[in-house]
Amino acid sequence: MRDARGEVKRPIGLRLWLSGGWLALLVLAALCAPLIAPNDPLMQDLFLGRMPPFWMDGAEPGFWLGTDSLGRDVLSRILYGARLALIVALVAGTLTCLVGATLGLIAGYYRGWPDRIISRFVDIWMAFPPVLFAILLIAVLGPGLMSIIIAIVVIDWTRFARVIRAEAMTQGAMDYVASAQVAGRTRFGTMLTEILPNVLPTIVALLTLEMGVAVIVEAILSFVNLSISTDSPTWGGMIAEGRTSVHQAWWVLVFPLITLFLTVLSFSQLGEGLKDRFDPVLR
């Protein structure tokens, strides 16, 4: 009688392996940056300026990905930059998710006046152009790690709120919710034990996507020089600097750009992959 549907376990899949692998590598690099970075990321040496990466003629041993115009080691700066990128991704992503998903869940499940208040708030919020909003916020709060995180949360919670609200509404109309009420579960209990597990895959997918967005926002803010103090290395700051010398030293621009791209891609792919894994119907 036991049919095949129950037995099939899909392999974890290349997508999860690759994206998870890249992110794990990045976390490792961020944690161990002082141990594995070949050079001091801030050390300038004008005699070593614009050295090419290791496979090209004229490369300087020990500077694997070359140096920038001030003679700073590109690889070491990328490794140290991963620290800031990941801190912003984790903290800002998680906070955004907590705020947005909580409000979305309440609006979508309780409906009525909580929904009217939250939805109105989201509508007004979304009328602001986000980048302008961020720059304004940072101008008021002053640059710094906290400001970036606050800016990301303040701008992006609406994305979670809207998606999770719609999802909670769909789930709330299901008979298993009525069935929980028939069994005597409280409304709050039903939200936590029946609705939340069913919107969790969407929350996870959004969360990882948001982590990618946070990395990009941090890079953009560094790019326009609104991020952390300029001497701690950031990917966005490196891209901004690399842009000015792209014809003489492309590697200063390209390596942080590739790192950024792979990281954002990995976050979104991880989310999609995890979403499938979470679903007992697809699993």
Binding site: D175, Y176, A178, S179, V182, G184, N198, P280
Partner: peptide
């Protein structure tokens, strides 16, 4: 009192929590 009156639903897919 709820355990004294119970219900069986029309659509057994949506009345059973898929998770």
């Amino acid at each position: 009192m709820r355990k004294r009156f119970q219900m069986i639903f029309q659509d057994p897919m949506s009345s059973l929590n898929p998770r």
